[in-house]
Computed example of a mutant assay.
Amino acid sequence: MAETVLLVDDERDIVSFMRDALEDEGYEVLCAYSGEQALTLLPRKPDVVVLDVMMPGMDGYELCVAIREEASCPILFVSARRSEEDRVRGLLAGGDDYLVKPFGLREFKTRIYAHLRRQKRDRGANDRFLRFGSLAIDARGRELRVGDMEIPLTAREFDILLFLALHPSQAFAREDIYERVWGLEADGDSATVTEHVKKIRAKIGGVEAELNPIGTVWGVGYKWQA
C-alpha cells in the first residue's frame, strides 16, 4: 500500500507543485488549504504531514500542536521564514523537520523519503523480519534467508533488496533506486543497479529456482513482486 502524505498550504500553486512531485513517486496525496481543513483529514491517517507556517486562521505552529494531540507521524514544515527562531519554534511545536522555500524537488522528495524510512525502521524495531513465503529478510541483522538457507549478499545488494521489499508492488526507476541506496552525492552510474539486481536474482535462484522477488517493469525499472 502506498504511503499517504498530507499537504497543508493556502497557496494552491505550491500544493499542486508538491502533489505532482509526490504522486510521480507513487505516494497517495491528501491536500488541505487551511489548518481547519487539515484536521478533518487526520482520520485518513497520513504517514507524513507537510505544512506551511503562514496560513490565515490557524497558522502552522498551532496546527502542528493540534496534530500532535492525535497523531505521531513525521511533520515537515515548509516556509519562506528562514530565521533560526522560526525553525526552533517549529521543532518545539512538535515538528520533525523544517525546509525553507523555495526548495528543490530532489531535496523535498528525499526528505519525505528519509522520514518515512525512519518511521518504518522504528515500527519494525519489534518485528525485525519481513516474510514473503519461503523468503525472510532480517532487517536488523541484515540477513536474507530462503527456507533454512542463508543467502549471502553484499551491503549494496541487501540495501536494494530491503528498499524494494519495504515498498511492495511500487515501481522504481534505476535512477531512483541508485539515489536512495547510494545517496544524493554518489558519483557512479545508475546502470550498476541492473548488475546488482542480476546478482541478487542469481543468488536467490541458486537456492530456489522459481523464486524471483524482484520484477522488471519494462520502460520503468524494478518492483518487489514477492
Rank of each mutant, 00 (worst) to 15 (best):
R156G: 04
M1R: 11
T110H: 11
G60W: 05
A125K: 14
D10K: 04
A171D: 12
R106T: 13
G133Y: 02
A38K: 14
R44C: 02
V50E: 01
I67F: 07
L99T: 12
A226G: 10
S79N: 08
L51F: 09
V100E: 13
A139N: 07
R121F: 01
R128T: 13
L184C: 04
K223I: 09
L42T: 13
R111K: 06
E23W: 04
Q170Y: 02
A209D: 08
P46Q: 10
P152F: 00
A2P: 15
E69Q: 15
E84M: 07
G104T: 04
I112K: 00
R68M: 07
R201I: 00
I177A: 10
T40R: 11
A38M: 10
E70R: 15
R68A: 05
E23R: 14
L130F: 04
V8N: 01
C73P: 02
R174H: 05
I14V: 12
G141I: 12
L166Q: 15
V217A: 07
R68V: 09
F158Q: 00
L116P: 02
R12A: 07
I67Q: 09
D47P: 12
L39N: 11
G205R: 15
R142W: 03
A2M: 15
L6V: 03
D189H: 14
K203A: 15
S34F: 12
R118G: 03
G95D: 11
E195I: 05
M55A: 01
W224V: 02
P56E: 09
R68C: 06
D86A: 15
E28K: 11
W182M: 15
L99C: 08
A80H: 05
L51P: 00
A66V: 02
Q119N: 01
A66T: 08
K120N: 02
S190R: 06
L211Q: 11
R180N: 10
L91F: 14
A71M: 08
I177E: 04
V49L: 03
S72R: 14
F129G: 08
S134W: 07
Y33Q: 09
S79W: 06
E25P: 02
R81Q: 12
V100R: 00
V48E: 12
P102K: 12
A173F: 02
V50Q: 00
E28L: 08
R81I: 05
V5C: 09
G133P: 01
S72L: 10
M1G: 09
G133F: 00
N212H: 12
E85N: 03
A186W: 05
V48D: 09
G183A: 02
L39F: 07
I137K: 04
D159K: 01
H196I: 08
F108Q: 09
G60V: 09
D122M: 06
D159M: 00
F132T: 00
L39E: 07
G206T: 11
D159P: 02
D122H: 04
L42Y: 06
C73S: 01
A114Q: 14
D138A: 13
A80R: 03
A155D: 11
P56N: 14
R201Q: 12
K199E: 15
M149Y: 01
